[in-house]
Nucleic acid binder design. Structure first.
Length: 577
RNA sequence: CGGGAUGUGGCUCAGUCUGGCUAGAGCGCAGCGUUCGGGACGCUGAGGCCGCAGGUUCGAAUCCUGCCAUCCCGACCA
């Protein structure tokens, strides 16, 4: 491909609408353009990268026995009513009606459609297992789309669904997908981590997320320095053992704490460490009042709380609710005498006593509180987020925190959908059984954004060879110079003949302009053909990621080029090919 | 949906507070000339119902009201 005939509208200045790196660079590198909020056109270079990502996904999915198909984007509402998600899904589901006034939606995911297909076509255990996937545009009407491709409303996703006849088969399918995902992200040349994840609204028992590691990631990952434990902070369980501590020897005592709303204020005022103060957080969980207690120096983990409560929705109580439940203003809630439907405490609160808590009285706290003696806790659970001070829950190692971008998620669904939609088969005994399902997603367009978040510098994108729209660009400096032109074309044809993915920058532009453009778009390898080099029978090859340049003799250029290319591939953890 | 901000040539912005003359700059674009290994320079030129709709005023990009759009901060997610 010649750049002069291609279409990469680069921007010299930062677009005002883009804040995050990937969004900014995708726009500047002429890879995407916004059509409307959260909806983007993939320009040729961006689309080419997406195709490369998709191809790697296809290859690995196939390797692990998944079969590609393509389902409709528009889905009938009736299917969603079968599973109850027509009501449950919320406003992210874009619903509309056709001319006959029938309900439809644009698919944000395809459990219903695939389950409907499979229940019609599969009736015997002999037809199982089956794993079907597609790469398709999805639509979720996000409350707030942002960060360009990172969280668009329309996005490209690979979604796979497995159907098995028993738990062992389902476990095997899950295992294969896990392997396929590891292989996919390795082949993309990304630094990533598979972590244990919360199953969230999709439900099911086991779940892993695949995180591309990047400082700008929104998710926090807890990893162990010694074993292979890695989990989303939302999920990472906290190890907490030890005997219950004996009852506090002192009776509760009310103290005056005027205007002291926060834990740090109270601790400072009473001159005690924050860990001696209890945080009492009040929530509205599906309309019921809930109090959750953690140590003052800890962070409550809302995902854990939600799971413990088995709640559909969980919201911090409003100021009005707090006043109603505690009888005091914000900041004076405590477990003693609190009138809520349910009160839960973090596990570690059993290990100590003599707490300072809110008194449920304006401007007052209680000292010497013993939870067992003075309050009615409904249960002790793992409610807080793991910290660097905690031991690894699997071994004695220490916990580290890393940031990541979620690009893949795999779930064991069990029979949630197969039961509600009657996706049944006959087993060897002729007994009807629900199929056991799994689902496996990769945000294809998000992978592109994540790749850029992970690999960029001040000059622009640094694509991995696998994701780059072109692995190599040949910069013909001054293409009006016939010798330069001829040599550039020569190299171009030779590389094409060797199957190298190469773009020829034959534009009639000044050298600096072209260098800047090539750095911006982030081609991993730049071959610079200039009059100066030609005279000495050399061309220069630059590694985008390191900036290192290699002068290669024109004669036997291919051999020299292969070496540099190999170096670059190795840098991204890629093997030959 | 709540909080904040912004809408002015294709892009980035000034001008708005304190209303007034022909609405500006840089980049980009077109033509000519010079230049040609890190986003060149000179000259000439095209391009704007100042987000939309009302209102105030002799006069509105500027003041008022309403609406729309986009971006940023919180609850959702690949």
């Amino acid at each position: 491909m010649r750049w002069s005939r291609y279409f990469i509208p680069t921007l010299k200045e930062d677009p005002a609408e883009a804040e995050v790196v990937s969004h900014r660079l995708l726009l500047r590198a002429g890879m995407v353009r916004r059509l409307t909020s959260g909806i983007y056109t993939y320009l040729p270079a961006g689309w080419r990268s997406l195709l490369k990502i998709s191809e790697i996904i296809r290859r690995e999915m196939t390797r692990y026995h998944a079969v590609e198909l393509l389902m409709p984007a528009v889905q009938p509402g009736d299917l969603w009513k079968e599973t109850g998600r027509w009501e449950a899904y919320g406003k992210e589901l874009l619903r509309f009606r056709d001319r006959h006034d029938r309900d439809y939606c644009i698919g944000p995911t395809h459990e219903e459609v695939i389950t409907d297909l499979v229940r019609r076509e599969i009736s015997s255990y002999r037809q199982l297992p089956l794993n079907l996937y597609q790469i398709q545009t999805k639509f979720r009407d996000e409350i707030r789309p942002r960060f360009g491709l990172m969280r668009g409303r329309e996005f490209i996703m690979k979604d796979a669904y497995s159907f098995d006849r028993d738990e062992a088969g389902a476990a095997q399918s899950y295992e294969w997908m896990h392997k396929a995902y590891v292989s996919i992200f390795e082949k993309l040349g990304l630094r990533f981590r598979a972590v244990e994840a919360d199953t969230g609204a999709i439900g099911g028992s086991l779940s892993h997320e695949f995180m591309v590691l990047a400082d700008t990631g929104e998710d926090v990952i807890a990893t162990c320095s010694q074993c292979d434990f890695a989990a989303n902070l939302e999920k990472a369980e906290v190890e907490c053992q030890g005997p219950d501590c004996p009852e506090c020897s002192l009776p509760p005592e009310q103290v005056f704490t005027p205007g002291m709303h926060t834990v740090s204020q109270v601790a400072g005022y009473l001159n005690v460490p924050q860990r001696k103060v209890l945080k009492t957080l009040l929530y509205d969980a599906d309309g019921r009042s809930v109090a959750a207690l953690v140590r003052g120096d800890r962070e409550l983990n809302e995902v854990k709380l939600k799971n413990v409560l088995g709640a559909q929705s969980l919201e911090l109580a409003s100021k009005e609710q707090v006043e109603k439940w505690t009888g005091a203003g914000l900041g004076f809630a405590g477990p003693v005498g609190l009138r809520v439907d349910r009160m839960v405490a973090d596990l570690e609160l059993r290990l100590e006593t003599d707490w300072i808590t809110g008194a449920n009285v304006e401007d007052a706290h209680l000292m010497h509180v013993d939870l067992k003696r003075d309050s009615r806790i409904n249960g002790y659970h793992d409610l807080r987020s793991i910290t660097r001070e905690d031991p690894c829950p699997r071994c004695a190692g220490t916990i580290r925190m890393t940031k990541g971008i979620e690009v893949g998620h795999i779930f064991r669904l069990g029979t949630k959908y197969s039961r509600s939609m009657h996706a049944l088969f006959l087993d060897e005994q002729g007994v009807e059984q629900p199929m056991i399902m799994g689902c496996y997603g990769i945000g294809v367009s998000r992978v592109l954004a994540a790749c850029i978040e992970q690999n960029h510098d001040d000059h622009g994108i640094i694509f991995t060879p696998a994701v780059a729209p072109f692995e190599t660009v040949i910069i013909a400096l001054n293409p009006r110079d016939e010798l330069v032109q001829k040599n550039a074309r020569d190299i171009y044809s030779r590389l094409i003949a060797h199957g190298v993915d190469v773009l020829l920058d034959d534009r009639d532009e000044r050298p600096g302009f072209k260098f800047k453009d090539c750095d911006l778009v982030g081609f991993p390898l730049q071959i610079v053909v200039g009059a100066r080099g030609i005279k000495n029978k050399v061309v220069e090859v630059k590694e985008r990621h390191s900036g290192q340049r290699h002068e290669l003799p024109l004669e036997d250029f291919w051999t020299g080029f292969q070496k540099v290319r190999q170096r670059v591939r190795e840098h991204f953890g890629l093997t030959s090919g």
